[in-house]
Design a protein around this nucleic acid. Structure first.
Lengths: 263, 263
DNA sequence: CGCGCTCTTGACGAACATCAAGCTCCGTGG
DNA sequence: CCACGGAGCTTGATGTTCGTCAAGAGCGCG
């Protein structure tokens, strides 16, 4: 099933970085933070200085595995990744989808042992941050520390939103909700506009995200298409009627905390 | 339904505390941390000094509501509380159950606006921590800051575990899983032993936690009783066959990170 | 050309929701 | 003391949602 056919990638093309390149790769990350607070130049330099390598992963590869004890945390610079767990019967459940600017295992910095795996949904580029450098950041930059903490709290907020959907919304509503969430998160980073975004994942992966079978996700998508809410067939995901889609999903972006204020 | 009959409690009996009383109330909290790292005397004093008031809430009252912007965070000293959200049709979904020693809205410290509500499942006692004092903790005590951060990461880990269950386990498995989780968390704090613990919540609340109807939760409990896995009828929850219950639920306590090591 | 992956469709069954009613327990007021 | 009412628990009948099984179609790739 899933465990068998994807190796833990060391990732192809590990390489050291020059300063201007780091700054480019960190842009989505800075943007994500600047949507929610201010970030001083010194703090930006501190983050850039804590960055180590960039690594490329191919779709399907694992960045880290349940049970690992990574010595570094990973930030997505490009591409889509996901957190997931496998069950006894081989079924898979995603617990988050991560975009450029997201730390995927800042958790391991303090939790130490991974309680879930992280995989690449598409080809992606990652920046690594050695834990010992992150410790130093927390020793010297309290405000920056609070911002990193905030990022993990945002992950928690998204987890809760997914939980509510899983418990109380229909498969169609959850799927619509995920589409809304992906769009708002991408648009806030400047990576999408016009109610349209690239979403190059399989229906099977989408099924694992919303917690249904691949057969059923297919029918759900047909329903969303027939109700003229979306177009998604090989090309980008296009939202035809945002208001209707958001209402169907009971989507409210409060939980994404897209408000700039002192933290 | 739910929103109507429970007011936001200011809580009865707000009162200032004397030092020895604070220390008593903080015991479950210290214990929770000491299960996962060391905590110096100075750090313990710093936390105690940041505490402000104690407040009592009655079962059914809300501690904070979605949309609030609290100026303080709350730590449970006794009793059970829950995070939850209400949906358009009045249905409720819990996203976490909190025990003594748990911070229930350390999140609001950085997220600012509450994206969910917190309610008292039983009568409970709370200790409040003004946000401005928590800021000072993060400015002066980096290691303690990391520990507070860790606590919110643990919340996230539990969220993910629930998500996996909601997506891929049956109602019976999720219920069994929650029982296992409650027991291990309570036992680790010294608040339960002998495979038995007080669990004074209604079947309706349990249904809201596992995301099913009250009728179905009743049938699930009967199944667990008939399979001789638990006893739960008015008295404490008693686990008759831990191994079988944990196996049925695919329960593994890794996600609770009950390992003492430097963070 | 053939193989594998993804998407699609139909038939059927299992898990769970909903609706409705009755039960027990317990506190309250007459 | 008992009647009453409410909250929580229990049970049965019925319907919907979604999973499973099976098969086939389209498409890229070696």
């Amino acid at each position: 099933m899933w465990a068998a056919d994807c190796s833990v990638g060391k990732g192809s093309g590990t390489m050291a970085m020059i300063t201007s390149e780091i700054d480019d790769l960190l842009q989505p990350f800075f943007r994500k933070i600047l949507l929610r607070d201010e970030l001083g130049m010194e703090e930006q330099r501190a983050i850039a200085a804590a960055a180590d390598q960039q690594i490329h992963f191919s779709a399907g590869e694992d960045l880290v595995r349940e049970g690992d004890r990574p010595m570094r945390s990973m930030l997505v610079a490009s591409g889509f990744t996901c957190r997931y767990r496998l069950l006894a019967d081989g079924e898979r459940q995603l617990t988050a989808i991560h975009l450029p600017g997201d730390f995927v295992d800042l958790h391991s910095f303090l939790l130490k042992e991974m309680d879930h795996s992280v995989g690449a949904l598409t080809d992606c580029t990652i920046i690594t941050f050695p834990h010992e450098r992150l410790v130093k950041v927390t020793e010297r930059y309290p405000h920056l520390t609070r911002l990193l903490w905030l990022l993990t709290l945002l992950d928690g907020a998204v987890h809760r939103e997914w939980l509510v959907g899983m418990g109380r919304l229909s498969a169609t509503q959850r799927t619509a909700h995920l589409i809304c969430e992906m769009y708002i998160r991408l648009e806030s980073l400047g990576l999408a506009n016009d109610r349209r975004f690239g979403f190059p994942i399989t229906q099977a992966a989408l099924a694992d995200a919303v917690g249904i079978s691949t057969v059923h996700v297919n029918r759900v998508l047909q329903e969303l298409r027939h109700r003229a809410l979306i177009v998604w067939d090989g090309g980008p995901m296009q939202i035809l009627d945002w208001a209707a889609l958001a209402e169907a999903a009971e989507f409210d972006d409060l939980y994404l905390h897209l408000v700039q204020e002192p933290r």
